[in-house]
Each structure stands twice: as structure tokens, then as C-alpha cells.
Design a protein around this nucleic acid. Sequence first.
DNA 1: GTGAAAGCGCTAACAA
DNA 2: TTGTTAGCGCTTTCAC
Lengths: 335, 335
Amino acid sequence: MENINLKTLAAQLHLSTATVSKALRDSHEISDETKQRVRALAAALNYIPNPYASSLRKKSSKTIAVVIPEVADSFFAEAINGIEAVAQSKGYHVLIYLTHESFEKEKAILMDFQSGRVDGVLLSVSAETVNTNHILTLQSHQIPIVVFDRICDEIKTAKVSTDDYNSGYKAAQHLIDRGYKKIAYLSISKTLSISRKRMNGYMQAMKENNFLPAEFYICECTTDDEYNNAVIENLLNNENRPDGIIASVEKLTTSVYSACRRLQLKIPEDVGVISFSNLKTAAILNPSLTTITQPAFDIGNAAASLLFKSFEKKSFQLDAESQSFPSVLHIRNST
Amino acid sequence: MENINLKTLAAQLHLSTATVSKALRDSHEISDETKQRVRALAAALNYIPNPYASSLRKKSSKTIAVVIPEVADSFFAEAINGIEAVAQSKGYHVLIYLTHESFEKEKAILMDFQSGRVDGVLLSVSAETVNTNHILTLQSHQIPIVVFDRICDEIKTAKVSTDDYNSGYKAAQHLIDRGYKKIAYLSISKTLSISRKRMNGYMQAMKENNFLPAEFYICECTTDDEYNNAVIENLLNNENRPDGIIASVEKLTTSVYSACRRLQLKIPEDVGVISFSNLKTAAILNPSLTTITQPAFDIGNAAASLLFKSFEKKSFQLDAESQSFPSVLHIRNST
DNA sequence: GTGAAAGCGCTAACAA
DNA sequence: TTGTTAGCGCTTTCAC
């Protein structure tokens, strides 16, 4: 099938391409009658404008980028849902990029956006991300960027996230209320602000309850499941093992449960477990899992909405628009 | 920061834009010395070519589209991983679109691709998709399309999927081997070929074991969790309830487990449960879940690889390249 | 080995 | 109200 463009339409209608273009965009300069004719033919021939010609000319691409560490995580999957919902409603397209927690990849991806490929970026930084120069560079090219979930405090833009400090606090306090005393915090990154904040909340709760730093256990996990399994098993296979565990990230849950099973530790009797998680299956785990659940869809939705607002009025100050959503504690049988 | 383009480079180097363009693309027409100079300046000024200008000119966008019903499903999430891996290695960009099981949305999305926005499409059809005209139209515009997982048999192109018939058969046979006799099949769509095939496999196994059609239970589920909960509870809350359940799709697992809990039916004693699922948490459910697991990453990877092959040689016949991957049965405590 | 020129399909001044 | 023209930034003949 022949590809049909403005010129074809114009020729068949004995009009200029300019007129056709304006008619299709419902310009007030064009008579109703002409608009009718143009629209009729466009529909008949099933004309779809070439987006790249239009992008080139207008210097706007009607597409945004979503840059995240991974998709196989129910938080990010739900966040994408939230983002896609807004994008679809605004007629925007969404490009997706996975960093797999690599800072180098993240830099390379953002670098490319200097080209004008996207009108804006939604970013959740990788666990390795140690500085924000790549973000600053992008901003200096007038590409608006909104960070969500895994935010960077340093950068000047909208940040949409959970109230991480409180969430960490809430998790720890819940375990303490349940009578657990030696509580471990499983982190995925020393550098990630989100992880630090959750940890600070945990530490604060511990201190307020007069636990000594010697009774805190901070355990660094990684991207590597095998490694995490070993680390967690090691943590628990020990005279002075913790009796409570806070998994700061969903994927660590499986490792914790498996380690307990291998070591024949009973949850919640021997070890209480609470996870930051959006898993739909939390309620049907064995035992059902107490979670700190983030409003993932809403966070994605809010981040995207802010980005679109910044497209609509250029005077919109993204950095005055950060939002923090409360997480909710779902108490189940693992604590 | 000023946006820098070929013209800027050319001016600073006292060369023509044509020469600079060729130099950057490492054309043999250009002297090594010039290439050096050009590359040096391009790097120094951090030149990133405008992709839309290039797309417009070359009529190729270096981007593909992934059209799927949803992301919040571990099969699709993993499949995206597989797709993204190939795309990234080939320097391609990936646009993502969610149909939320709506045929109308799917049509609208594919329609837009006639514009040349993408070089190819990876599609997993919605549960509502009843005909393939939208796909045929796209193909008539020379946009290659590979269907994966939720394939359509009718269309002439590469189809990458699991061996669904065998998987359905395997699931049923496993339950039968375990001594279950009244086995229900939970479907998500009458029209989806993938669902029909799994169901046919189930029926075949039943017949081979001399169960009567009267002992088959086929249960239509939907997108709506509430509704599914009710339907499944109704199925099980009954004198003549099934003693075995095959969930043909991951998301139904939670409904089944919850229904059993509410009705105080014990898994696996009262009801055996097997699910098509890629959940990482299958092993730590209560009880751990017997699954038919699809090689999601590989399927995504294979689908994308085929698409890229068709870009590389236009003589490549996609419709001669369908692939079927075996699923694996993970026997756990729910059966 | 390099450059001039045309043009991808569209939009936006500016004329008419 | 419609048309002419220029040009977005790039690639690609085709001359030189």
C-alpha cells in the first residue's frame, strides 16, 4: 500500500499542503467547508501524519521516556501502568529504558536524550548512581525530568516518592511493637537516597526504643540473587542472629523466606519479616507477608502528570512540585 | 545550552555538512584525517544527531513497539526484559503500549503505526481481539510484526509462543496423576487462541483418561478481579465442586487461593491447584504453587530477534520462522 | 576525497 | 480564507 501524505491529499483536493495541514489541525483560518472536505478525504484515505516530519519541524516529539532499573518488580510495573494511563490520555508515546542498576547505562541513556528524542523524562535512578551530572546535563538542554521512587535529593526538579523515612520507621516500629528486638535492615544500596532514608527511619525507631547500635543489623544486598541468598542465610545462621527482618525491597522477600526455610527458622515465631512490597500475592504467601506497600500506580501517575504540566506551561516550576505519598502497612502473618 | 548540529560542526571544521555526516558514519569516501578531526570535534562538543531528522530522511526510526495487554504480570515483565536486551544491543528504542485487553485500543494503537513511527511491532493480542484486520492493514504498509505469547494463528507472520496445547495437557495430566478427578479449567477468553489451545490440551488429557465431558469444568474469567473472585468462589462452593483447578493465567492464582481460604478448602487435600505462572514467589506461597512456567525472557528475546532479522535482510520470511518454546512443570505443594 | 543541492513530510511566516 | 515559501537537521545522489 502506497503511503499517503499531505501532498497527496492536497493534490486530490486541489489545495495547497499548507491549507490541508491547517485544516487537519482545525485552524480558525480555514473555512468550515474546506475542513469538511479535507477531513473527509483524510479519513477515506486513512491518512496518518508522519510524526517525525512533524517532530522535526515543531521540535517536540510527543513522547516521553521512562528510565527505570527493572520491570520485573511489581512496584515498577504498576508505576508504568500509572504513567501509561496519563500518557495515553494526552496522546503521548512512551519509550522505556532499563538500566539494570548500571550507572554507565543510565548515563548513556540520558545522554541520548540531548538529541531531542523525547520531550521529557521520568527517572528512577539505578542503585549504582553516585552523582547527578548526567541529569544536570540533560536539564541544561531544557529537557524536563521528574524523578520518582528512587529520587536524588540533590537535583532541582520534581520528586515523586513514598514517604521513605516514615515508612522505614513504621516498619521497624511495627516489628518492635510485635516484640522483636534484634532487627535487621536489608538494604540494596548505600548510595540510594531512598534506601538511606528508609534505613534512617528504621534506626530512629530503634533508638527511640532504646536499642543499642550494636543490636542493629545492616545488611547490604545486591542485584545478584545467589549472592543475596548467601548473605541472608549467613545473617540468620548465627548464634546472635536477628529475630526480625526488614526487607527494603520486594525481591529480597523470596531470599528471606527461602533462607528461613533452609535454616528451619519459623516465620513469625523465630523471625519476623516485613517487606517493602507491592506483590499481589503477599496475602497468599506462606506465611502471608506483612508489607509496607507503596501507591505505585499513583506515584507513576503523579510523576507523569507533573511532567505534562511542565509541557503545558513553560513557566511551571517543576522543582516546587515534589510530592510524597504515604505508604500503607498491611499487617499479616509474617510478623 | 545551545543545541549543536551538523551545520555547527561543519562550520567550525570548514567542511560541508555532507562531509561531516559521512565522516561520522565512517564512510569510505572520507579520508582518515578528516574523520579524526570530525570525530574529535563531535566528541568535544558532545554532538548527538537529531534522530527525527535522520528518521525522516532514511524512513527508518530505529524504534520498535511492544503492544501488550498489561505489564503487571510477570510473564510480560520478563518478556519485556528479553525484548529490551536485544533492542539495546542493536541500538534500537522501544515504545511500549498497553491495551488493557481492549480491542479498540489495540486497533487504535496499531493504526498509528502506519505513520512509520516504528520499524516493527511485537504484539501480544488482547483478550477481546476477535479479528485480525488491524494487523493485516499494518502488514500491508510493510511494517513487520511478530506476535508472541498471545498469538493469532490466522495471520501470516512469525509467532513466538509456548507450546500451549502440550502445556495444557501437561497441567491436566499432572493433576490426574495426582489422583484429582474433577478438574476445572479457568480461562480468560474464549477467543484467545492461546487459551483455547491450553484448554484443548486439558480436554485431551481428560478424554484420554476416560473422564466424561460432564466432569469437565470450564470457567470463563475476566479482567475484573472482583468478578473472578465471585465466579471462582461460586465454582468451589458447590456440592459437585471440582477437586482440581488449572489456572490458565497467573493473575487467577490469587483468586483461587483466596476462594479456598474463604471456603475453608485445603490445598492440596480438597483442591489441587496448578497455575500458568512466572511468579518468582511461587515457591513461597502457602502452600507453594505448582506451576507451568513459560520461558518468558527467551520468548521476548526470540520475538525481538526475529523482528531484527527481518530488518536486516528484507528477503527474510517472517512467516517461515515461528517458534514454540516448551514450558516447564514445577511440581510443588499445591498438587 | 569533498561539496553542492535536493528533498524526506511537515509547519509557520508571510503574501495574496 | 488560501497559497507561497522557507526550513527543521539530516542523508544521498551526483559533480567536481
